[in-house]
């Protein structure tokens, strides 16, 4: 397995910072907004963004939530791996709220589709936007595009993007894992 670093710790921090300022530009005081992390990995990014937003402006109050999409996935009984659910923590209805869905990597778009379905079970949002740290371009199975993107990469489907978080014992970074050519 070959590795290529896409974002090192410094670039990672800058990217998260930029995403935060982009959000502030559009949402100012975050009234009527709700930031929803998609379980399991989107919640690290959503928590980090909320943390950073509070550092930038300590008076900011953002409602957040985490959304599990297991029961809404379109590959139930189709994959080889059983699907195990994570915790959903939505203490607020999204009725008439502006929702920012947050995930780490956007690939086929299927998770985001499931997340939108799951979200609708908490009410009818006024608007839904999508924020991702990494956008794997040209690999979408569905017509879904992000509104805020940390970094865009071109990759093939056999490659894997791994986002590491200091919360889970790694260093904040993003690496691309490539399978070695079999002829090598």
């Amino acid at each position: 397995m070959q590795k290529r670093t896409l974002l090192n710790t410094r670039a990672f921090e800058l990217t998260v910072n930029r995403l935060c300022y982009q959000l502030i530009e559009n949402y100012q005081d975050f009234q009527d907004a709700i930031i929803v992390g998609i379980q399991p990995r989107g919640i690290y990014l959503s928590k980090r963004i909320i943390e950073r937003l509070k550092e930038i402006n300590p008076s900011t109050h953002v409602i957040d939530g985490s959304l599990d999409i297991t029961f809404y996935r379109d590959d139930f009984r189709r994959g080889n791996e059983p699907l195990t659910a994570n915790k959903t923590e939505m203490n607020h209805l999204v009725e008439n709220k502006k929702v920012i869905l947050v995930d780490d990597v956007l690939f086929t778009g299927r998770s985001v589709r499931s997340a939108m379905d799951a979200l609708l079970d908490f009410g009818r949002p006024k608007q839904v936007e999508l924020l991702v740290l990494i956008d794997r371009r040209f690999s979408r199975h569905l017509p879904i595009q992000p509104n805020y993107v940390g970094s865009k990469i071109d990759s093939i489907s056999s490659e894997r993007v791994e986002v590491k978080w200091k919360e889970t014992g790694g260093k904040d970074s993003v690496v691309l894992l490539m399978k070695k050519d079999q002829n090598e």
Binding site: D68, Y72, K87, T88, D121, F122
Partner: peptide
């Protein structure tokens, strides 16, 4: 545990 949370929401249904 997950389903208990589901049946206590306003929309008590999932499409699984």
């Amino acid at each position: 545990d997950n389903f208990k949370q589901v049946i206590n929401r306003p929309i008590k249904k999932v499409p699984s």
